[in-house]
Every structure is written in C-alpha cells, then in structure tokens.
Write a protein that binds this DNA or RNA. Structure first.
Lengths: 155, 155
DNA sequence: TACAAATTTAGAATTATTATTATTTAAAAA
DNA sequence: TTTTTAAATAATAATAATTCTAAATTTGTA
C-alpha cells in the first residue's frame, strides 16, 4: 500500500483516510462499480463519508487517468479501476459486464473521410451478447432485466 | 411520408400528429439528439407537446429497433435515428460526434474465454480523437468543453 | 507548531427521466 | 358515419443520479 500512497502524493493528490479507503477498494478491482457501489463499501469503514467525497475522488482519479469511465449505461456512471486498456462485453439480457483483454487496434483503421476530420487517439469496443445464465433461461424477455433476473449478478 | 405512415401502422404503432412530427424530425437525421433536442424541435410545431410524449415515442421506437441509443454520454441519453449499423467517433475536446460507416466485424473475434461465457450478438466501437477545429485551437484544455468551445458544434 | 490550501460533510439544488392520472384521440367495429 | 375502446397525450408530481454550497476540518509544508 505504501507505493500507492507515494504514487498519489507524487501526482499532487492529497491523501485523506476516505480517499485511501476508496483507493483500497478500487485496487485490483475488476468490477465496474457505480458511485453508489463505492459509497456503500466505504460507508462500512467511514460511516460519515458523503457522496460528494466519493464523486470528488472519482472525478479526481478520472482526471488523472487512474480510473476510466465505462460508457455502457445511460442511467448512471460506471467506473473502471482496472488500469490496462481493454474492451467490454455486455449481456443484453441481464447487463452483466465482462472484460475483453485483446487489442484490436491494428484492425481498426478509420475510413479516409473520418481521418480528414479527426486525429484518432484511442478506441473502445462494446461487444453485446448473451451470457451463459441467460442462454439457459432462454428466450423469455423481461421489461427491466437488470433488477431481477436470477442467476446473473448485477453489473 | 406516406410510406412512413404505412410502415409504422404495420408494426402496431398508433400514429398521432405528435409522433408524426417526431418521425419527420428523425427521418434522415444524422445527428445524435437528446430527448430535449427533439422536444424543442417538436414544440415549434406543437407548442403543447410534453416531455413524456417525446420519451414515450422514443422508447417505443427503440423497442421496435427503429432508433438506437448511443452510449457516449453519461449525463443524458442520445438517440441515433440512422437505421444502418455504424460506429462513432467522438472528439475528446468538444464532444462532437461523427458516424463511422465501416463494418469491422470480421476483425473483432472474441477471445476463447469470453466465447465460453457469452454468445456474441453485435458490437459497437467508440473511436476517440480530436476534431479539426479542436486541433487548430491546440492544447488548451477547458473544464467543460462541450458547453463553450468555439468552432465545434454541440453534439 | 502554525498556516494556507484543499478536502470533508450535510444538505440543498439541479437535471434527466419516469410515473400518475384525468382527458383526449386514433383506429377498428358496428 | 357513428360508436367504441384501447392507447396516447399533457400536466404535473415523483424519483434518482449527480453537482453545488458553505461552514468546519484536515493535510502537507514552511
């Protein structure tokens, strides 16, 4: 944990116990938590922690490139603490998210008309599919899956 | 416009003047409007139109696969009325969105471990880059670009 | 230790979206 | 054409996620 502390001090990140708790929670985490997910966790250790602190810290981490934002959900922001670039696959039935560790950049040449307008920087792929649990359940469709579908974890 | 009317009746879509106005606005539209963008437009023709109608109609169109949702913005939903599958490129400075009409599917083979867990259905790529106007402006960074940056349209 | 700047908290405010309900209307039936 | 009825509309309230505010506290440094 010492490297963590050093590292963040270096980038001008003032370390408070709350922030440290958030960093601990995020370190090595391969889920895609929302601010609320994090807030609940931190509250176990710091019962007085506020949402503002969670949002502030997340924003600071995003600004510093230490955490990215996953654009999969139009309802709420999901954060991705895993540092290496990767893509995602989302179950269209239950919204479960998986990480896809493969670099497709070589295959992703942009058309000329786009290259005239944009200087490319990076790319991110959302794959959509049906997870094993939802394949088992079969073709039944629910109105709002992510809330209730058995067998699939919330994302 | 007649085909539009027939088409939507066929799929069990009750046609009201408000909906027709929304359909007219969306037809051939290559922008990525929010519900509010659409609401403002429709209000010019139907000053009493309500947000609920806009959302209801959009949801009905999304459910029927006539309109898709673009996952680029965690603040609000953006809709994409252009019917053919395509990808997007987003300017990381001003948030301008461009359409990328190229099918990369052949190159996007998923790793085996993912294929064990998910049956793939489709994919969508977000390219990120810097648009020509923002390249001109150069390295200056603003806190919230999309609101003010000159030369770049709002997305 | 003392200080300045940054951070925290609680709560209010804001914004996007969804839900509610009485009224109206489109489209099918008579 | 008129009647019927199921669905859609509009106004408004409700909800949920996120941001803002301001006073109190804390961090890292001098």
């Amino acid at each position: 944990m010492k490297e963590l502390i050093e590292k963040y001090r270096e980038i001008g990140f003032k370390l408070t116990p709350q922030r440290l708790a958030i960093l601990r929670f995020l370190k090595g985490n391969t889920s895609h938590p929302t601010a609320e997910n994090i807030y609940r966790q931190i509250k176990e250790v710091y019962p007085t922690v506020s949402f503002a602190t969670v949002y502030n810290t997340l924003q600071a981490l995003v600004d510093r490139g230490e955490v990215t934002e996953v654009t999969i959900d139009s309802q709420k922001r999901h954060f991705d603490p895993y540092p290496k670039p990767h893509h995602h696959i989302i179950c269209i039935e239950c919204n479960k998210i998986g990480d896809v560790f493969k670099d497709y950049s070589d295959a992703l040449k942009l058309p000329k008309n786009i290259l005239k307008e944009f200087k490319p920087v990076r790319n991110h792929i959302n794959f959509y599919g049906i997870c094993r649990e939802c394949q088992k359940i079969g073709g039944i469709k629910y109105g709002n899956m992510s809330k209730s579908r058995a067998g699939c974890r919330e994302f």
